[in-house]
Simulated assay, not measured.
Amino acid sequence: MVLRTLLAAALLLAAPLLPANPAGAAPAAKAGPVALACTGYVALTYDDGPNAQYTRALLTALRSAGARATFFDLGSRVQQQPQVTREVVQAGMWVGNHSWSHPYLTNLGAAAVARELGDTQNAIRGATGQAPTLFRPPYGATNATVQAEARKLGLTQVTWSVDSQDWNGASTDAIVRAATGASAGGIVLMHAGYQTTVDAVPRIVQGLAARNLCPGRIDGSGRVVAP
């Protein structure tokens, strides 16, 4: 008994001292990209939601990776699935306007463009309590009329600098290569409708972190900044 007690004491003295965890404190969160190491930011964006299956899967993947993203949603789908859009905001993501029905807005007159954008603003505000400040024209198709109607609603037009081609059948590997090749200030186009895109999330965040880049937020001037 005495020998066991002496051995236990010796092991205790040899053990490294660890910082005490305050009473009731939550366990430390799993380490993600270190914000202080970021030399630039890249915006991860997902179009055409909400999608009950893939939007939720994206939220899970993004949260697990410690990343935030912008979801450009269609008003018609927000109307059908407002709860999914609420979950996007509750998860700390941002929601932008992607029109009501995904038309080529450049083929429409001013009144029709105004309805596409205005009805979507109302649907997202109704679902989340917040009106979007960002707008992405479907297909990236825009003109002076589209931009003028967007400005009337206080919307900043956002397109992209990197197309992941997930909509065109790109593999997860190809999506990761495209997204991680983005430069600081870049905006990556992806979509909330593919398992390959969901699977790419952790590798995208890791690949950006290896270059000291972190997922960022698109501000009111269209620049990518710290979240």
Rank of each mutant, 00 (worst) to 15 (best):
W160R: 07
A144C: 08
W100M: 14
A127K: 01
A123Y: 03
T133W: 13
T156E: 13
V158G: 04
V95Q: 01
Q130V: 13
M93V: 04
G140F: 02
R125G: 06
A127Q: 02
P132H: 11
Y139T: 04
T142G: 05
S164K: 09
T145E: 11
W160N: 09
D166F: 04
G129R: 02
D119W: 12
S99G: 02
L153V: 09
A123F: 03
W160E: 05
D163T: 12
A150P: 07
A111S: 15
S161M: 03
Q165A: 14
L105S: 08
L153R: 15
T159V: 15
L105D: 06
T128W: 00
Q147K: 14
N107D: 15
G109F: 11
N122G: 14
G140R: 00
P132G: 08
D163C: 10
R136T: 10
A114N: 12
A131Q: 14
G118A: 04
S101W: 01
S101G: 12
G92N: 10
T128S: 02
W160M: 08
A114V: 04
T156D: 03
Y139C: 08
G92L: 10
T133C: 09
N143V: 12
G96W: 09
V113M: 08
L153E: 04
G92V: 06
W94M: 10
A114G: 06
K152T: 15
G118H: 06
G154W: 11
R115I: 03
L153C: 06
L153M: 14
S164C: 08
N97Q: 11
L105I: 07
R136E: 03
S99H: 06
P137Y: 06
D163Q: 06
V146Q: 05
A170T: 02
V146P: 10
V95I: 15
T128R: 03
